[in-house]
Amino acid sequence: MALFGLGKKQKKGEEVQGKESPSAVKVLGSGCASCNQLEANTKQALAELSMDGSIEHVTDFVKIAGYGVMTTPALVVDEVVVSSGKVLSKDEVVVLLKKARGLA
């Protein structure tokens, strides 16, 4: 039964009614130097790939734990954790973004 949208499976890329569209790329972390470095490297990678440069930086530990991440910084692409516990270089982020978007 899909009363009020409950029980209805969401298709990939489909927005949930009443909620904002999630940012495609997120950095999870407290805002420490490592987290900020991962965010900077990710912005450089997005620019290199000519992708939208908006990144959401999630600092709420309850939300971070909701992704199953226990060590930060972590990188999330299209709601999938692609890395955690490591500051990725720009080139490493480029590879992960290409793989996540089916460009590799």
Score class of each variant (00 low, 15 high):
Asp52Asn: 13
Gly7His: 12
Leu88Pro: 05
Phe4Pro: 02
Gln44Leu: 15
Glu56Gln: 03
Gln17Thr: 07
Met51Ile: 09
Ala33Phe: 09
Leu38Gly: 05
Lys90Asp: 03
Leu46Lys: 02
Val80Pro: 02
Val25Ser: 11
Met51Phe: 12
Ser89Val: 09
Gln10Cys: 13
Val87Thr: 11
Ala100Trp: 00
Lys26Ile: 09
Ser21Trp: 11
Val25Gly: 08
Ser83Ala: 15
Leu49Asn: 07
Asp91Ser: 15
Glu15Gln: 14
Lys43His: 14
Leu3Arg: 08
Gln37Ser: 09
Ser50His: 11
Lys90Gly: 08
Lys90Gln: 14
Ser54His: 15
Lys86Pro: 08
Leu96Cys: 02
Ser30Ala: 14
Leu49Tyr: 04
Ala2Ile: 05
Leu75Ser: 07
Cys32Val: 13
Glu15Phe: 09
Glu48Val: 12
Val94Met: 04
Asp78Trp: 00
Pro22Ala: 10
Gly7Pro: 04
Glu14Ala: 12
Met51His: 06
Val94His: 01
Gln10Arg: 13
Leu38His: 03
Val27Ser: 10
Ile55Met: 09
Phe4Asn: 05
Ala33Arg: 03
Gly13Trp: 07
Leu28His: 00
Ala40Ile: 05
Ala104Lys: 13
Ala24Trp: 06
Pro73Leu: 10
Leu75Glu: 10
Lys63Pro: 02
Leu28Lys: 00
Glu79Asn: 15
Cys35Asn: 00
Lys26Val: 04
Met1Gly: 14
Gln17Asp: 14
Lys26Arg: 13
Ser21Met: 07
Lys99His: 12
Asn36Gln: 14
Gly53Phe: 08
Cys32Gly: 14
Glu79Pro: 06
Thr71Ile: 10
Thr59Asp: 07
Pro22Leu: 02
Ser84Pro: 04
Val94Pro: 06
Ser89Cys: 05
Gln44Gly: 12
Thr42Arg: 09
Glu56Leu: 04
Gly18Thr: 01
Glu56Tyr: 01
Leu75Arg: 07
Gly5Arg: 08
Val87Leu: 01
Lys19Met: 13
Ala104Pro: 13
Ser54Leu: 04
Ser84His: 11
Val27Arg: 02
Lys86Ala: 10
Thr71Asp: 04
Gly18Asp: 02
Lys19Gln: 08
Lys12Arg: 13
Glu48His: 12
Ser23Lys: 13
Leu38Asp: 03
Ala40His: 02
Gly7Asp: 10
Val58Cys: 01
Glu39Cys: 04
Cys35Lys: 01
Lys8Pro: 09
Val87Asp: 03
